[in-house]
Design a binder for these strands. Structure first.
Length: 278
DNA sequence: CTTGTGTCCTGTAGGC
DNA sequence: TGCCTACAGGACACAA
């Protein structure tokens, strides 16, 4: 499931393959993979555009085009981007942009939950409201203990649920929220507003470090291969996960005899060590 | 405004 | 073997 570190890895690895290329045309295997505009407008809108650079905001990958247009991808759970030769068509390809060098950018998304949008830069449609209301990314300067304290203060919801809220922690998803909570020693089920200042400080720091580590290790590829880097390479942060996906296994903190448990928080699975997290 | 729940979507894993 | 169901989950709509 691509979160901030995965999308950042994809951005870094795709940019040299795409920047400076012109889009000759596009095709859709599934019209509903386009969030905005309607398919015909999307296809004509990208044709002939020059790719200038790649950017990222939270979990959104932004392909900057000439004439002030942005192509915006959200990969959701299983989305994948791949530069392939023009004759090659990956399984589950839903959309493709044909480039001017006999290659194509293939948008592979088995579950068809991901979306691609074409919009004027700086004037995204309401459909992309999630973008407009985004909070601070934990790797940005503004993401401090004070910032997080403001966001969590007075809130009764589980802290894990708020970490997944893109208005609070932009770019954080299920894996990195669990890993940050483990590093901070906080249970995912704790009411957010009842964390102590010390805990909030540890959590802010843990979020910063866990996302930076995720980027350093090129993201997390789980056994089901939902996230793959361009070139179908795997990330390697999965080898460094402390709790996520490890239910029933021994806690990895040195000297801890605890066993990682799985629970449900806000309708999604969450992992923690009952010995280390309170 | 806040919080919790349901829905989208489809491949895959597991049960029988 | 093969069918069937449950499950995965980020974002969003909606209800209370």
């Amino acid at each position: 499931m691509p979160e901030l570190p995965e999308v950042e890895t994809i951005r870094v690895e795709l940019e040299p393959l795409l920047a400076g290329r012109r889009i000759r045309g596009a095709s859709l295997d599934r019209n509903d993979i386009v969030g905005w505009p309607a398919p015909a407008g999307f296809l004509s809108g990208v044709r002939g555009r020059l790719i200038e650079s790649l950017d990222r905001r939270g979990k959104y990958l932004i392909v900057r085009l000439d004439r002030g247009k942005d192509l915006v991808f959200h990969l959701r759970l299983s989305g994948h981007l791949e530069v392939v030769s023009a004759s090659e068509k990956p399984r589950f390809e839903r959309a493709r942009l044909v480039l001017d060098n006999d290659q194509a950018l293939s948008f592979v998304e088995p579950r068809v939950l991901g979306r691609v949008y074409l919009a004027d830069a700086g004037a995204y449609p309401a459909r992309l409201g999630g973008m407009a209301r985004m909070g601070c990314e934990p790797i940005e300067r503004g993401f401090t203990a004070g910032y997080l304290q403001d966001k969590l203060a007075g809130r009764k919801a589980a802290v894990k649920s708020l970490l997944l809220d893109q208005r609070v922690c932009c770019g954080v998803g299920n894996i990195y929220s669990d890993e940050a909570l483990f590093r901070a020693g906080v249970r995912p089920t704790r009411a957010a507003g009842r964390l102590t200042a010390l805990e909030v400080g540890r959590l802010a720091s843990a979020l910063r470090r866990v996302l930076a580590d995720g980027i350093r290790w090129c993201g997390t590829t789980l056994g089901d291969g939902r996230y793959l880097r361009p070139g179908t390479q795997q990330g390697s942060f999965q080898r460094r996960l402390k709790v996520f996906g490890r239910a029933g296994e021994r806690c990895r903190r040195r000297g801890c005899r605890g066993t990682v448990v799985r629970t449900r928080v806000g309708n999604r699975s969450s992992y923690y060590c009952p010995e280390c997290q309170h």
